[in-house]
Design a protein around this nucleic acid. Structure first.
Lengths: 235, 235
DNA sequence: CAATCTTTATGAAGTTTTTATGCAATACTG
DNA sequence: CAGTATTGCATAAAAACTTCATAAAGATTG
């Protein structure tokens, strides 16, 4: 019997654990479960999952605290489940190191899409791969060169830094705060408007249709992410 | 009197220095000498040789250690001289960043062949001559000579060093800091104005239209790059 | 003293920041 | 539950600021 990726589900509600387990095993994943943060930390240490799914509401250790603790010693991709109306917790979790989120109630298709994306986030250590390619977009970090359909695209320093940062974390949801502090510094953490302006300029330069971006996706109320699979322009 | 490439000879034995100097000057190279690693590092920083020849056996700083230190900040081709029976040092030197070696005793023909080969390699253009060509511009690194439409162009030493450095990294964006430390030294890393002046002079000498440079392109806020494919003047 | 390098000055070009506006999605309210 | 207010996003454009190109004067070097 051959299994796909190993997934750890952390939730205190037995029926959700059960439901996820059944559904994900149908998709050929190997599923393990934990009902508390402590159990989860043990399982991560001993059983090396490839992805961890965490319900934000947990007894004792909260999902956010659990995320933070996992990140202290493991880079495993983390997807958090947040109940609707829990937006601030979701952002907090992302800033604590989570990679992505799914809002309850959610469909299995959505979750499995996120899982697939998370699995592809093979730690892109900056410096290992000097050339990034996706669809018609090529970025040569060695040369500091951006090509679209083999034509050079001129980016300003800030635009380039922003694009580079996002590509480095392809697939991961990057909150406004995260991006602002990374590119502009701590003092600018609340200048979300800067971000909109520069994201807008980047899209104008690299997206075919800025109204339906393929690469730089908006996560409303949260931030932006660089798409793993450039969305095909839909009919 | 016009000189070819600049060669730095590093050896502690005066008669070898003298012999190499005379022989290489006969071949029309400009030869400078250093008798210790410290002197050599100074000379590389201040006088920008095109090739460095290092005797592996030196007092104080060894040839290998010297090679390593040079490589920390300069891509200048290094040829090491190893006495027979010193094979292991030779390998170590190559691993530390040397480009080639010559085993003593050696004939002048062999050494000059290695020098020519090293000079050729700096341009990374596989060909018979250590010459770079692009469009109407020709740079002969062996003779330290620049031609535009087959007419010689007079460059000052700094202009030449800058052009050569940029050609060595054709296509790659070189930041102000990179160029300044490479050509002028660490202490000048922030003198971006020098760079503008010299880039301006170079453009005046090699560009058809300095307002639309074909070769030396500006990346605003970042630095300069030597064009990969010289832009055709557009209508 | 002649060539080269370094400095200074200035207008032009380019970039970032700020402000303004419309739109769309969500939340509020009677 | 329709209509209205609010909030966040996208975009454009003006203003402020920074960097660039160039000329030319001053200093240095051999």
């Amino acid at each position: 019997m051959k299994h796909g990726a190993r997934i750890l589900v952390v939730d205190d509600e037995p029926q959700i654990r059960r439901s996820l387990q059944v559904n994900l095993e149908n998709k050929d994943y190997l599923v393990m479960t934990a009902e508390s943060g402590e159990e989860a930390l043990d399982a991560i240490a001993s059983r090396q999952p490839d992805v961890v799914i965490i319900d934000l509401i947990l007894p004792s250790i909260s999902g956010i605290e659990l995320t933070r603790r996992i990140r202290r010693h493991s880079p495993v991709p983390i997807i958090v489940l947040s109940a609707i109306g829990n937006e601030s917790k979701k952002v907090e979790a992302l800033e604590s190191g989570a990679d992505d989120y799914v809002t309850k109630p959610f469909g299995m298709d959505e979750l499995t899409a996120r899982i697939r994306s998370a699995l592809r986030r093979t730690v892109m250590v900056p410096g290992t791969e000097p050339v990034f390619k996706s669809g018609t977009l090529t970025v040569n970090f060695e040369r500091r060169e951006v090509l679209l359909n083999d034509r050079p695209v001129k980016l300003t320093p800030t635009e380039y830094d922003l694009l580079k940062y996002m590509i480095q974390y392809t697939g991961k949801v990057l909150t406004h705060r995260t991006l602002l502090t990374a590119i502009w510094g701590d003092a600018y953490a609340n200048q979300a408007q800067y971000l909109r302006v520069f994201i807008g300029q980047l899209r104008k330069k690299i997206e075919r249709n800025t109204a339906r971006p393929q690469y730089i996706l908006t996560d409303p109320g949260v931030g932006y992410r660089f798409a793993h699979d450039p969305q095909e322009p839909q009919s």
